[in-house]
């Protein structure tokens, strides 16, 4: 199901404010792409523009193109709701629905897609998704309990299970480990390495070691100054970014000389 993402000349606006400018990038299928950069540089906004979640904020719009396997996400007849059904997202803070059981959380997306499934099929899907998120053995005895009773790391894996249950083409992760302890972070990183076989993953992270550990390609975002739009400074294989970056700004950032 993994798909390739092509972004060309993408500008993102919030009202009159230009948040991100001139992004050109190609993201390969079945890879993990990490986006790094200082706070406020637009990497999260860029990530959200890949499933049109930035439009939740009134006045947000884009210029340019985002094409996933030949389909323009911002085409005139494209419904953002459909886009989000194909592109899963995991957020910074784990957000399982507190009013739903673990079981219902996993199938929440499937229910939305209107798929009428028999109980047996649903059971299978729940088990498969939870196993896919390395959570099955921990929760299989309490599927009817609320998801909010789990630990933070478990909740985040539940959210990943919820996202992959609908077999999305792309999985976006917005700092998925920044609210987690190192053990839970490791669990999520191991999981990402497995998910890479099936999905195209884009992750925003503030943790450069994490970017270096998990990703195949890395994009560095930066902004010229306060009030100016963020832009993609450099996009290269992760190895190159962390050993021999093309841009001076990238080297300064990853070596801790600023930001």
């Amino acid at each position: 199901m993994a798909k390739r993402i092509d972004v060309s000349d993408l500008d993102i606006y919030y009202g009159n404010f230009k948040a991100v400018e001139g992004v050109n990038v190609s993201i390969e299928p079945r890879s993990i792409t990490a986006l790094i950069g200082p706070s406020g540089c637009g990497k999260s906004t860029f990530l959200r523009s890949l499933n049109r979640m930035h439009e939740v904020i009134p006045g947000a719009r884009v210029e340019g193109k985002v094409v996933i396997d030949g389909q323009d996400l911002y085409g005139a007849d494209v419904d953002p709701v459909d886009v989000r059904r194909q592109i899963g997202m995991v957020f910074q803070r784990p957000n399982p629905f507190p009013t739903m059981s673990i079981y219902d959380n996993v199938i929440a997306g499937v229910r939305l897609n209107g798929g009428k499934m028999r109980k047996g099929e649903l059971d299978e899907l729940v088990e498969k998704s939870l196993r896919g998120a390395n959570l099955w053995t921990e929760v299989k005895d309490r599927l009817d309990r609320p998801g909010s009773g789990l630990s933070g790391g478990q909740q985040q894996r539940l959210c990943i299970a919820r996202a992959i249950a609908v077999e999305p083409e792309v999985l976006l992760m917005d700092e998925p480990c920044s609210a987690l302890d190192p053990i839970s972070t490791l669990a999520i990183e191991d999981l990402m390495a497995e998910l890479k076989e099936r999905f195209t993953i884009v992750i925003v992270t503030h943790n450069m070691q994490q970017a270096a550990r998990v990703s195949t390609s890395t994009g560095f975002f930066n902004l010229g100054g306060v009030g100016q739009p963020g832009h993609l400074v450099e996009f290269n294989p992760t190895e190159k970014i962390f050993s021999n970056p093309e841009e001076k700004a990238t080297e300064d950032y990853i070596s801790g000389r600023f930001g």
Partner: peptide, 9 residues
């Protein structure tokens, strides 16, 4: 946002 990101109207 969790609901919207799953493709909820």
């Amino acid at each position: 946002e969790a609901a919207l990101a799953l493709g909820a109207t």
